[in-house]
Design a protein around this nucleic acid. Structure first.
Length: 571
RNA sequence: GGGCCUGUAGGUCAAUGGAUAGACUCCCCGGCUUCGGACCGGGUAAUGGGGGUUCGAAUCCCUCCGGGCCUACCA
């Protein structure tokens, strides 16, 4: 148990004991749940509101607080207990807090905050799911960043994680691309250029919208691609698929993410059709209007189409195959998490229900981490319409801005060093923007804000780390011998540092990296305030303050690690 | 029409049912003879409307209004 949880536990025990003679129907857990943090540190470090006891005891809440306090044994690790109205406020023994938390951070280092909450579990995290033959735009960064961060948080909490990517290398979008290329762009050379690949797709969508009849030509190509009967088409598919996958690979490398398993839609076609056939035989699915469907209306989940009229497979049926494949390859999986945008909430419910119906035993182990879309102020980003900002264009802008900022501060860097630093700063800016927000909510993407490295941003946090690093380089060894009097900013910093394990646990239990992001920012703020209030080098308490600086470095580095963001020694 | 999500300062976001609703950005004012000014301090400014539950509501429930996504052959 970490220090914070242990303290709450101690408070709960003391309160529970003091309440015993009242003979209330109350569990210790109920008491524990009520323990909170006061709005300002002068009021105390923890508090316990007594309002809810008033109706049970039929006494005034203020009096209950007073009485309870007088019956209370001081919990371990605390120095004082006071009441303020109906609140009982607990004051930590700060001397003790220092000696309990700082040495722990300094010895655990990059492991500080990790736990075994999820031990003996094996979790698959499927994320990114980028399609070939389409743009990888700013919206895709969200899912990719979210998945990588979740994978790290789950690992940090003691589970084994398998990172999986499910790439869309077959389906109607591929057929559209190939149709459009052959018909209108055949003279152009195949290029390993994302924006060119994206533009062909957008062109296809535009032409098909103008003339709906052309869809028949695309359908024919889709059918041939699925059957594999046309050698020339197969070749073109292979080549262009390769181009897309290569550029995606480069993006993943920049984004600091990797996968243990790659699944491809193409590989799900045969198995998907097999599953549907057996569903038809068992009467779970049937033909309707020429297509094959499963009727989920009795579950309020509508009609789910599995096979098109022309016999080609839809992503629904491919997803059935994917689920089976995952568990046949990893029978010991405890959970399979799908990090997918909220547009597919309904689809995912249909998937799980269908798996349920056809007797797939593991369906309860599927989980959907749903996240909101990334929008431009003028509307949704879309690969179909081209209303988007390509990842590569965006990154280029951010990197060039980062280079400018770095050059302002340090001259004479080699091009290589400059490029590496700028990339790290840029990725931090981009990922932090994607992760700081509650994942359910849509992100309104404003490129101007992404280029602002001040305030609540990834670079601000990296900067705080670099500052700390810089102090340590110029000084001697830290020691934890604590001074007689602690400055207010020292106390704030120590308290904030001690919260980290709780925050990680919260992020793990709710599968929300935003808690870590917000914490990292607040921690950096407190550090910067400390930095201004408490000079370190050559101060009376240099050794002690150095130990705080070093502790800060470990914790902020760990926080950023969990977000999938690197620190910089200099920036 | 139905389902899911969502509405907090001018803009973008925080806030385990609890004390004075916090930040960032914008605008205005201030801080380097000291460890990195991508910093720090100060100022202006907010819970969409109406009911309800509760000792207590931004948070839970109902309703109205606004935004987003999905709702049979895109993924």
């Amino acid at each position: 148990m970490d220090v914070g949880a242990a303290r709450k536990e101690a408070i709960a025990s003391a309160l529970f004991d003091a309440l015993k003679n009242k003979k209330l129907k109350l569990e210790k857990a109920d008491v524990l749940k009520k323990i909170q943090t006061p709005p300002s540190p002068e009021l105390g470090d923890y508090c316990f509101p007594c309002f809810f006891l008033a109706s049970l005891l039929k006494e005034e809440p203020d009096e209950i607080a007073l009485e309870l306090r007088s019956n209370l044994k001081l919990p371990k690790g605390f120095k004082d207990v006071q009441t303020q109205g109906a609140y009982i406020n607990f004051f930590i023994d700060r001397e003790k807090l220092v000696s309990e938390i700082i040495p722990v951070i300094l010895s655990k280092k990059e492991k500080f905050g990790s736990s075994d909450e999820g031990k003996n579990k094996k979790i698959m995290v499927e994320f990114s799911q980028a399609n070939t033959h389409k743009a990888f735009h700013v919206g895709h960064i969200r899912g990719t960043s979210l998945g990588e961060s979740l994978a790290r948080i789950i690992e940090f909490s003691g589970s084994r994680v398998i990172r999986a990517n499910y790439q869309g290398d077959s389906g109607m979008h591929v057929a559209k691309w190939i149709w459009c290329f052959r018909k209108y762009h055949a003279r152009e050379k195949l290029k390993n250029d994302e924006s060119w690949i994206a533009s062909v797709y957008v062109d296809a969508v535009r032409r098909l919208e103008r003339n709906k009849k052309l869809q028949e030509e695309v359908n024919a190509i889709n059918k041939k691609l699925e059957s594999g009967e046309d050698k020339e088409l197969n070749e073109l598919w292979k080549k262009t698929r390769e181009l897309s996958l290569n550029s995606l690979g480069a993006i993943y490398k920049q984004l600091n993410t990797h996968f243990d398993f790659y699944y491809f839609e193409k590989d799900m076609e045969a198995k998907g059709k097999e599953i549907v056939e057996s569903m038809v035989k068992k009467k779970f699915a049937r033909k309707s209007e020429g297509a094959v469907i499963i009727d989920l209306q009795e579950y309020n989940l509508g009609i789910w189409v599995l096979i098109r009229q022309d016999g080609t497979i839809l992503y629904s049926a491919k997803d059935l195959a994917l689920a089976e494949k995952k568990f046949s390859e990893h029978p010991d999986l405890d959970n399979s998490l799908y990090v997918i945008a909220s547009e597919q909430d309904f689809h995912f419910k249909q998937l799980v229900k269908t798996l349920d119906i056809i007797g797939f035993r593991q369906s309860g182990k599927l989980g959907h981490i749903s996240y909101g879309v990334v929008r431009l102020p003028e509307g949704k980003m879309s690969s179909r319409t081209g209303n988007n900002i390509l990842y590569s264009d965006f990154l280029e802008k951010v990197v060039s801005h980062a280079k400018k900022e770095i050059r302002k501060r340090e001259k004479g860097l080699s091009a290589k060093e400059l490029g590496e630093r700028a990339l790290k700063v840029s990725i931090a800016a981009i990922k932090y923007d994607m992760l700081k927000q509650d994942e359910h909510k849509n992100i309104i993407f404003d490129i101007k804000e992404s280029l602002n490295f001040e305030g609540n941003s990834g670079p601000y946090i990296q900067y705080s780390y670099a500052r700390a690093r810089s102090i340590l380089k110029k000084s001697k060894k830290p020691n934890a011998s604590k001074p007689k009097v602690l400055e207010s900013k020292e106390i704030e910093l120590i308290k904030k540092l001690s919260e980290f394990p709780e925050i990680v646990s919260k992020a793990y239990n709710s599968l929300s990296p935003s808690y870590i992001a917000n914490y990292a920012y607040q921690l950096s703020q407190v550090f910067n305030e400390f930095y201004h209030q408490c000079p370190v080098i050559k101060s009376k308490n240099e050794g002690f303050r150095l130990s705080l600086v070093e502790s800060f470095m470990h914790v902020v580095k760990n926080s950023l690690y969990l977000l999938g963001i690197d620190v910089l020694e200099r920036m």
